[in-house]
Each structure stands twice: as structure tokens, then as C-alpha cells.
């Protein structure tokens, strides 16, 4: 384990006993998360995402394996020591989980109160954090008076109160509309940048990963099937699960004629209308068979599959035009 690894999970297994049946939620998970990462964990419902994140702060005790946080194996700690350690691991939730009978500022002082901080110190820290999340005017409101996005901001402020090294987010934007989701994700990115907090984001939405994460792990059927930089995993997914998540179910069913090309956008080219330019400049027509590209920070990610026109010269013309633009082009007959 290198020194800039903050969380290192080894051989983690978790099973549940329900109605005399054992359900395996996680099987032999290995995962390393570096300091300063915004690490996404994506998978379909029931894949084991929540269980994995709950095993990180030991809300769920793993059956076997270790969770090394900041150099200490959490699974070896007593309940008392673990309670102490949890102050370094903030957590936010899909349903916000605010204390409904406490004012906003008192929600934020809650973790400080249980840590034994004086009331005055706790209050001034809470007000500072409210400023960070842009809700200074809501200090005396009750959670029921806030919108979903505002509630999540309060939850973020509360999770940051004890100066955690890591922030765990379990579907933190799943109850929010797309616009609010973007705002909350921008806030998380900001917190990561300015406070250096490592962030772990659990989601079932690719768009969330694209928006903020630099690393991603794909979890499928209780196992991590793929892990790496977002741009790598996104442009060249290797596992079936990842392909399904990124490109949908339909891809494999499509059949293409013999001369088809896949153009991969890995973020090195800018997001401009490549295909339109190509057709205009080469004077050749192509048939777009499949396209899934995304614009991330003005860079193009994703892939387009085109059917080339008849005639070898026309085909060469198109391929070399694309290669000249530093796009990766490969011939495909089947895109399974």
C-alpha cells in the first residue's frame, strides 16, 4: 500500500442472513482509493454498492477481509475506537437523514456536540460551514422548510463538521432533479479541491461519474469487475457490466455490415462536430450506426460507429482524415 492511499480494502466479503437464506452482498472485494480522489462506485440495483460503502465505516461489519483507513485496519478496532474513527469519515445519504426537530445550524453542530466540543465553538464552526455550502440565511430554519438540494447541502455541512478525511456519498443525488444534482456535485468537487477531502460517490447513474469523478469502479453481482480512470473505463470498457451501464442494453444486438469503423473519443479532441466536418471535407457519406458521446469540460468522450461507403479509396480517405485528427479508429465487424 503506497503512502498516498487513504482507503485500502482487501478480500472483503459480506453475507446477510435473511429468512434462513444467506445472501452474499459482497464477494472478495479489493479496492484502493487514493488521497484526493473523487472515486465513483457504479453498479445496478442490488449490486452491493451500499453494502460496500457501509463496510468502509463499519456500519456493516464485514464477515472477512480488511478495511485499512489511513493506515489502520478498522475491522480490528473496538466499537469505542471505531466511534472515534468515524469522525474522520463523513457520510451523506440519498434521503439526507437530517434531524427534523433541530434547526439547520443545530444539525451541523450535532457531530461536534457528540464529540464533546463546546457549544460556542460548535456554533461558530456550523455557521462557517453553512457559509461554505451557501446556506447562511437558513441557519435558523428547520429541515422541513428546505428543498431537497438545500437539505443535502446541510447534510454535507454536517458531514464536514468534524473535518473528515473522507466523505462517503451513498446515492446522494438520486433524490434530486438534474439541475440540483449538478449543483450538489459541483459543491462536492469544490470541497474536494479546497479542503482536500477524498470523496467516494456511490451511484447507479453514469452521468454522476462523468460529472465529478476521476476514478471509477464498476460493481456487478457483488464483485468489482472493472476499476480505473474514468476516461479509460469510459472509452474502453472491458467488462460486460460496464458496457451495459455505459451504452445500454441494445448495443450487442445490433449487427453491422463488414466495413464498419469505431471512432473512440478519449478526451484528447475537443467537442466539435467531427462527423459533419468529415463529410463536408472528404465529400464522402457515412452511415452512423451507433453513437454515444459526451461533452465533458469541452472534451469529447465516447464512441461513434460508422458504416463506411463503398469503394476502397473513399474508405481510406475517411480513415486517414480521422487519423489525421488524432482520433483512434478501428475496424469492427461486431461490437460485442
Amino acid at each position: 500500500m503506497s503512502t498516498n492511499t487513504i482507503i485500502s480494502i482487501r478480500g472483503l466479503t459480506k453475507t446477510f442472513l435473511s429468512n434462513k437464506n444467506t445472501v452474499t452482498a459482497l464477494r472478495n472485494i479489493d479496492l484502493d482509493i487514493k488521497k484526493g480522489d473523487i472515486f465513483g462506485i457504479i453498479g445496478v440495483s442490488g449490486a452491493g454498492k451500499s453494502t460496500l460503502v457501509r463496510c468502509i465505516n463499519l456500519l456493516e461489519r464485514p464477515d472477512s477481509g480488511s478495511v485499512i483507513f489511513d493506515g489502520r485496519d478498522l475491522t480490528k478496532l473496538s466499537e469505542k475506537q471505531m466511534q472515534q474513527e468515524r469522525r474522520s469519515i463523513g457520510m451523506i445519504f440519498q434521503q439526507f437523514n437530517l434531524l427534523m426537530q433541530r434547526q439547520v445550524w443545530k444539525n451541523i453542530t450535532f457531530p461536534l456536540e457528540i464529540a464533546g466540543l463546546s457549544k460556542d465553538d460548535a456554533k461558530s464552526r456550523a455557521l462557517k460551514l453553512l457559509n461554505t455550502v451557501g446556506l447562511s440565511d437558513k441557519a435558523n430554519s428547520y429541515p422541513s422548510q428546505l428543498s431537497g438540494g438545500q437539505k443535502q447541502r446541510v447534510a454535507i455541512a454536517r458531514a464536514l463538521a468534524t473535518n473528515p478525511k473522507v466523505l462517503l456519498c451513498d446515492e446522494a443525488t438520486s433524490a434530486l432533479d438534474p439541475g440540483t444534482t449538478k449543483e450538489v456535485l459541483a459543491l462536492l468537487r469544490e470541497i474536494n479541491k479546497t479542503l482536500g477531502v477524498t470523496i467516494i460517490i456511490i451511484t447507479h447513474e453514469m452521468s454522476v461519474i462523468e460529472e465529478v469523478c476521476n476514478k471509477v469502479a464498476v460493481i456487478d453481482k457483488n464483485n468489482i469487475v472493472e476499476c480505473g480512470n474514468v476516461s479509460d473505463v469510459f472509452t474502453h470498457p472491458k467488462s460486460e457490466a460496464a458496457k451495459k451501464l455505459f451504452f445500454g442494453e441494445g448495443v450487442k444486438d445490433k449487427s453491422f455490415s463488414k466495413r464498419c469503423c469505431r471512432i473512440v473519443f478519449d478526451g484528447s479532441s475537443s467537442f466539435d462536430p467531427v462527423i459533419a466536418d468529415m463529410i463536408l471535407q472528404t465529400g464522402e457519406a457515412v452511415n452512423i450506426m451507433f453513437a454515444d458521446t459526451k461533452n465533458i469540460d469541452g472534451k469529447a468522450y465516447g464512441q461513434i460507429i460508422i458504416q463506411l461507403p463503398d469503394g476502397e479509396i473513399a474508405q481510406k480517405k475517411i480513415i486517414s482524415w480521422l487519423r489525421d485528427r488524432n482520433l483512434s479508429v478501428e475496424e469492427v465487424s461486431d461490437i460485442g
Partner: peptide, 26 residues
């Protein structure tokens, strides 16, 4: 709400703190 109890646990609350500051007050 069990989610609120879970949140308190995630902040390192003891059982006693959960009873007095979460269960009874909520």
C-alpha cells in the same frame, strides 16, 4: 426514521447519545 439513526452512527454517536439526542428528541 432509521436513516437518521444510521446518520448518527456514521458520526460516531454512542448508543446513549443516540437514545438521548436522536430517539427521544426526534
Amino acid at each position: 426514521d432509521s436513516g437518521v439513526i444510521e446518520a448518527a452512527k456514521s458520526m460516531g454517536a454512542t448508543h446513549w447519545q443516540i437514545v438521548t439526542k436522536v430517539l427521544l428528541s426526534e
